[in-house]
């Protein structure tokens, strides 16, 4: 990590002096790290990752005069990336209203990550017994609403309402954890 910083900073200083090959190497090394940075934070919109990488690289280029040679390079570059990311979210927020069912996709997207199955279990445990059974039945075991409702001893309509509430609560809980 610190070795990378020393290397990136040396390349940046060369680039500031007009050394084109060093500057190109800097941008492509940085591009890889930016991609990883945005991928970690943009699981819900992987299609936008490359746009953000490019926007940040352009900001690094056009605003490189604001880099203070006495300071480390990585915090400066990632401060630009963070600004672009927040700006992206801010622009997004205006348009996107998320229907409840989308939380299921969010949960599914988290699934391959180690530990997330446990997180899901823990979140499920906080739900009332009936809601928990319905979520398990419909979303994990793949039963129909009527089947799961019958198993829980409620009508299909009541099962639908209860499942809706359960997913909403679950989504809020998972999201709260991701934000925290």
């Amino acid at each position: 990590m610190t070795e990378t910083e020393a290397r990136l900073k040396a390349l940046m200083l060369l680039g500031l002096d007009g050394d084109a090959p060093a500057y190109r190497l800097l941008l492509s090394l940085l591009g890889g790290r930016l991609r990883a940075y945005f991928e970690r934070r943009m699981r819900d919109a992987p299609g936008d990752v490359e746009d953000l990488v490019q926007e940040t690289l352009m900001a690094v280029h056009t605003r490189r005069a604001t880099y203070d040679r006495a300071q480390p390079f990585t915090p400066w570059a990632f401060a630009l990336a963070r600004y672009k990311l927040i700006d992206h979210w801010r622009r997004r927020k205006i348009r996107v209203t998320v229907p409840i069912d989308d939380y299921v996709e969010v949960l599914a997207a988290y699934a391959p990550e180690p530990g997330s199955a446990m997180d899901l279990e823990r979140a499920l445990d906080t739900l009332p017994q009936r809601q928990r059974d319905l979520v398990r039945g419909v979303k994990i075991e793949g039963l129909s609403l009527a089947q799961a409702g019958a198993r829980a001893g409620v009508s299909e309509g009541a099962a639908k309402v209860a499942l809706h509430r359960a997913l909403k609560a679950l989504g809020e809980r998972m999201r709260g954890r991701a934000d925290g």
């Binding site: 680039g15 500031l16 002096d17 007009g18 050394d19 084109a20 090959p21 500057y23 190109r24 941008l27 690289l57 352009m58 280029h61 490189r64 005069a65």
Partner: peptide, 8 residues
């Protein structure tokens, strides 16, 4: 971007 960067 890296074509002939202007020195700062």
């Amino acid at each position: 971007l890296a074509t002939d960067p202007r020195p700062i």
